[in-house]
Write a protein that binds this DNA or RNA. Structure first.
Lengths: 115, 115
DNA sequence: CCTATTAATCGTAATATTGCATTGAAGCGA
DNA sequence: TCGCTTCAATGCAATATTACGATTAATAGG
């Protein structure tokens, strides 16, 4: 029904999914990459850079801000957006852990010619 | 308009976003974790495990399969799903690279008290 | 052949997301 | 003060996602 049954899953699973969902849009990936490159940036920069409308980019920025990944500090008429390194590091670790869970676990309980 | 303007972004940005979007649902995180734990699994296991309907889980599995993250081989009346370690490793690397882009870049071109 | 089991698919409803035009608010310069 | 710039907030339309019941297809076992 378009609504995720978050109550079925652990807090960590939901957290991971939330981060992944936030990264799950090329515009937000591009915004983060641009922020990293410049290490400081105002919204209007991005409008020229990405080719999306200002309102759209503002919305993407809002989502990233809600996640805590970026901070926005008011700077006169403009807003300076930066990546929050602490949160970035935390999420990086979360994903690393998730991806590391795999290793090369043994063949396990399925048939020999499976996979 | 509910449709992403993928043509504005690089192939790599879209690829990253696609992977992230696929991981952007707690059920799919849970499915992957369960697959890792068991290292092989059939859909019906997951129905009991997750508390979602069979149709819903089948749909989530389909998305993960489209991404290449998991393989499904027919096994009599059931299907055996496994993680594809090669693809998993590839995506792990992609994300690591993305997260590593940050480092501790210098303060850059914004005001001294920004961020 | 009949039936049970298993998973994929279809159809549908509810809700979320994306993108934008427009409006609103706040600071800056003339 | 009057615009002008910059970004946020709102509201809309188009589309995507999530979830599930019902159906279908395939296979195993009798």
């Amino acid at each position: 029904m378009g609504i995720s049954k978050t109550e079925l899953f652990t807090k960590k699973q939901n957290e991971l999914a939330n981060i992944a969902r936030a990264l799950g849009h090329p515009a937000r990936i591009a915004i983060l990459q641009h922020l990293v490159k410049i290490n400081a940036c105002i919204c209007n920069d991005l409008v020229g850079e990405l080719g999306l409308a200002q309102a759209t980019i503002s919305q993407h920025l809002k989502e990233l801000k809600q996640l805590g990944l970026i901070q926005g500090t008011i700077e006169g008429t403009s807003v300076c957006y930066c990546i929050d390194p602490k949160v970035w590091e935390k999420y990086k670790k979360l994903f690393s852990e998730f991806f590391l869970e795999v290793k090369q676990a043994s063949k396990a309980n399925c048939s020999p010619d499976c996979c």
